[in-house]
Design a protein around this nucleic acid. Structure first.
Length: 597
RNA sequence: GGGGCCGUAGUUAAGUUGGUUAUAACGCCGGCCUGUCACGCCGGAGGGCGCGGGUUCGAGUCCCGUCGGCCCCGCCA
């Protein structure tokens, strides 16, 4: 039977007591981590989110209390009153911060019993994630899991303190808002009072924060949920949290400086690390050329070497064709990689296959020869050029990609990361930020056969590329910037268009008709026409940032109640069917296609 | 939409070329135990192998389908 607290109000948490507390009468409350019943004396490790204290039931003390303690099991909830005493000579536990003392119990209340938990509440256990998520309330009792949420709290606290100090205002924006074209798939919410009409959950507060700038709130922030109905990954959940900010009367270097200062503050407050100097800045073109990806991890080398020019007329048809027909040929020199086995190479070939590469040529540089299936196709001069450009030395491994530029860059870019993982080229505790700037304004979407905005349609072009908007829009670059941390995109933003005519011009480029622009973004165009200040901002992915800072591989580990890959919550079993009456009230009917047999 | 991996006691796993009553560890239950902290010792219960078909004398092992989980591609302004 569960007892009420009564007079046993706790005086300390389970990590608080030390030798200096010896002699004090204290009350602790928490969960039973473990019981060691010796028939006579009974030890219980009492746990709360701060730590563990050993409490002792001695039969020579209170008989009733000792009797009661026999029935205690794992995860029972206890309040104990007792005296802090030193542990007897030789029984100090150096593994526990509280290991020099124990609490000799004089009064006990079993605040609640517990069923035997489906898994043990401790770190370093190996359990299926689906079970952890179903019993998330138990999983979250494990210190390593709680640690992620505690760190998340520290990060958001640090962010608020910093931005409040810099004069930013925390202003909430609607969760029930308007569906807009472009971007990700919206989560829709039917309107009961407007039959047939829908709200959308925000993909980000983008337009609202711009409107707030027009309204004169020249420094805004919000730690806010965003929703995108797209497929999940280890670093993507359908609802996620952004540190969203926007400033007026600034240019991009001001936003970048502010974001850097904020990151420095977060790392200082939360990890005690000093981030010194400015974050390096690299243009989009440079990242793609050197690393293949626009979010390179710059903690290790393995940079790409472009061999397109020298392969144009070579005897290896695959390379020659790619090089002369608009594609590219690139190589990575894996220093000391000649020790990789044939199986390793097969694995890596399969790996680049994920990104559309149809193969992966390689050359092992050994004392006696260039060992490779393709080296026989090259002239001595070509081999010399390859050697020169890649810096190949004895013991190295050269890996090649040849195809359309996107395929080569994507596959070799990801291969580079994979090699670093396999060869353990990075120290897990290092943090390396990078700004990526000068993104193209537009990209061509082969599916819809039109240009779409790379960042979003409100991103300003670079000043020097303004004239390209009319002549060669595909070449125009934007005032967008991404913040990359250890190869992960943790933030992105831009200077926005604050001129109504330029905004209309960009909509036109994106094949958004005047009518459509008016219908979907009329309020923004309106606002821009009423004295919009120059403005811009950035949004940081809180989940990803905390994931990296806490050294875990999935944002699920830093979200209290995350969803599985099918966007389901194992605990609540959301999403679920609803009563027909609810649908009727919303003027909805279901039309679920039958599966074909 | 596609590729890969996985599903066996509460948990984590083992399970030979298909072949008696499906193993182990931890956990759980009972007993003993006054200094343990992964307490110890003795004893015990617990699953029919995600689900549904099929092949076979016989299926956890083979085949088909299906559900669920994880990683990835597509998708994610």
């Amino acid at each position: 039977m569960a007892e009420n607290i009564g007079n046993l109000k706790r005086t300390h948490n389970c990590e608080a007591l030390r030798s200096k507390n010896i002699g004090e009468e204290v009350v602790l409350a928490g969960w039973v981590q473990r019981r060691r019943d010796h028939g006579g004396v009974i030890f219980i490790d009492l746990r709360d989110r701060t730590g563990i204290t050993q409490v002792v039931f001695n039969p020579e003390g209170n008989k009733d209390v000792h009797e009661k303690a026999h029935n205690i099991r794992s995860e029972y909830v206890l309040a104990v009153k007792g005296k802090v005493v030193p542990r007897p000579e030789g029984t100090v536990n150096p593994k526990l911060p509280t290991g020099e003392i124990e609490v000799l119990v004089s009064d006990l209340k079993v605040l609640n019993e517990s069923k035997t938990p489906p898994f043990m509440i401790e770190d370093d256990i190996d359990i299926a994630e689906t079970l952890r998520l179903k019993y998330r309330f138990l999983d979250l009792r494990r210190p390593s899991v709680a640690k992620g949420l505690i760190m998340r709290h520290k990060v958001s606290t640090s962010v608020r303190n910093f931005l409040n100090g810099e004069g930013f205002l925390d202003i909430e924006t609607p969760m029930l808002t308007k569906s807009t074209p472009e971007g990700a798939r919206d989560y829709l919410v039917p309107s009961r009072v407007n039959a047939g009409a829908f709200y959308a959950l925000p993909q980000s507060p983008q337009l609202f924060k711009q409107i707030l700038m027009v309204a004169g709130f020249d420094r805004y922030y919000q730690i806010v949920k965003c929703f995108r109905d797209e497929d999940l990954r280890a670093d993507r959940q359908p609802e996620f949290t952004q540190i969203d900010m926007e400033m007026s009367f600034i240019d991009r270097e001001d936003i970048m400086a502010m974001a850097e200062k904020m990151m420095a503050r977060i790392f200082k407050d939360v990890l005690g690390l000093e981030l010194t100097g400015h974050f390096p800045v690299m243009t989009y073109d440079e990242t793609v050329t050197r690393y293949g990806l626009d979010k390179p991890d710059i903690r290790f080398g393995l940079e790409h070497v472009d061999l397109t020019e020298i392969m144009k007329g070579c005897g290896f048809k695959v390379f020659a064709d790619a090089a002369s027909k608009g594609g590219i040929v690139k190589a990575i020199n894996v220093k000391g990689g000649a020790t990789l086995s044939r199986k390793d190479l097969d694995d890596l070939t399969a790996y680049v296959g994920n990104y559309g590469a149809r193969g992966m040529a390689w050359i092992k540089v050994t004392e006696s020869e260039w060992q490779s299936p393709i080296v026989k196709f090259f002239t001595d001069e070509e081999i010399g050029r390859i050697k020169e450009l890649t810096g190949a030395e004895v013991g190295d491994l050269l890996l090649f990609g040849s195809d359309k530029a996107e395929v080569v860059n994507e596959s070799l870019g990801n291969l580079r990361n994979e090699l670093a993982r396999r060869l353990k080229l990075v120290d897990a505790d290092t943090y390396s930020f990078l700004w990526v700037t000068d993104f193209p304004l537009l990209e061509y979407d082969g599916q819809t056969k039109r240009h779409v905005a790379i960042h979003h349609p409100f991103t300003a072009p670079l000043d020097e590329d303004l004239s390209l908007i009319d002549s060669e829009p595909a070449k125009a670059r934007s005032k967008a910037y991404d913040l990359v941390l250890n190869g992960n995109e943790v933030g992105g933003g831009s200077i926005r268009i604050h001129d109504q005519s330029l905004q209309q011009k960009v909509f036109k480029l994106l094949n958004i008709s005047e009518e459509e622009a008016g219908a979907k973004f009329g309020f923004l165009l309106d606002a821009l026409a009423f004295g919009a200040p120059p403005h811009g901002g950035i949004a940081m992915g809180l989940d990803r940032l905390v994931m990296i800072m806490s050294g875990v591989d999935s944002i699920r580990d830093v979200i209290a109640f995350p969803k599985t890959q099918k966007a389901a919550c194992m605990m609540t079993e959301a999403p679920s069917q609803v009563e027909p009456e609810q649908l009727t009230e919303l003027n909805l009917s279901l039309n679920i296609p039958k599966k074909e047999d």
